[in-house]
């Protein structure tokens, strides 16, 4: 069966520091994979490499069987420019830790700008889709508000709606709740859970271990740029085989 996302021997170096040391990962269509690990383990870098916000030092990434981010030349491979990447990025949704909403647009504006300017939808079609997505995340009553008037949780939900409006094949979540006050985390996790139940393909980098356990088909534990252990949540979280995994989870419980 063809995996939706295939990462092959990914390495990433920042000057002399190797942040990713050979990552191999496959994600099937409709699968939900959570990535956990200590800070500095490279999980965010890995996520950012998938949609080429960071350019890998070596290794390849395939979406739906197609090589992304690079083109083959007669010598080897060459990274694509941001302009060339734009088309590929339409199929990958990315939710940022700090939301990155566009402050000069309303919630509806944020959700409709890409469908209009990138996909070429008419204003009416874009707005119809936008309202639908905002209703899906529970923010129909806030469509005309500017981001500064929304709470953190609401902003993140708009960010998710913004991504959904592009109907991506794959959704990436970069610590989507880490920048939120505790009482606002729940509403975002609720939306993510709903997306999971509907069958979206999701790769979630998170500190919310319990959520990861509930929602994922597979949990991946990363440390120092490598995948240490992966498997069903029941195995990795409750009965980890690797000592480092055990240490990390114990540490979390103590906090």
């Amino acid at each position: 069966m063809n995996p939706l996302l295939r990462i092959v021997d990914l390495h990433k170096r920042f000057v002399s520091l190797e942040v990713l040391s050979g990552i191999d990962l496959n994600v099937a269509r409709g699968e939900k994979v959570s990535i956990i690990g200590p800070s500095g383990s490279g999980k965010t870098t890995l996520l950012r490499c998938i949609n080429y916000l960071e350019k890998p030092s070596s290794g390849h990434i395939y979406i739906d069987g197609n090589l992304i981010g690079e083109k083959q030349t007669n010598g080897g491979y060459v990274h694509l420019s941001d302009r060339e990447l734009a088309k590929e990025r339409q199929e990958i949704g990315f939710v940022f830790q700090r939301f990155n909403l566009f402050p000069h647009l309303t919630a509806l504006g944020n959700v409709t700008i890409a469908p209009q300017k990138v996909l070429g939808l008419s204003k009416d079609e874009a707005e119809r889709r936008g309202r639908e997505m905002l209703e899906k995340v529970g923010l129909s009553h806030k469509i005309n508000e500017y981001p500064e008037r929304l709470s953190g949780g609401q902003q993140q939900r708009v960010a998710i709606a913004r991504v959904l409006a592009m109907q991506p094949k794959l959704m990436l979540f970069d610590e989507a709740t880490s920048a939120l006050d505790p009482e606002l985390i729940g509403e975002v996790l609720r939306v993510m859970r709903q997306l999971a139940e509907e069958g979206s393909t999701m790769v979630i980098v998170t500190h919310e271990i319990q959520f990861a356990g509930e929602v994922s088909d597979r949990v991946v534990f990363m440390d120092q740029g490598r995948i240490v252990e992966q498997g069903p949540p029941r195995d990795v979280l409750l009965n980890p085989r690797q000592p480092r995994t055990r240490e990390f989870l114990k540490h979390l419980q103590e906090r």
Binding site: L53, D82, R83
Partner: peptide
């Protein structure tokens, strides 16, 4: 920097990101 990244991840070319965001 996040503004530009958000625009790019939505599939905008750098030119579109500059113009609309």
């Amino acid at each position: 920097k996040g503004q530009r990244e958000a625009a790019l991840t939505l599939g905008m070319t750098p030119a579109k990101a500059m113009m609309y965001i």
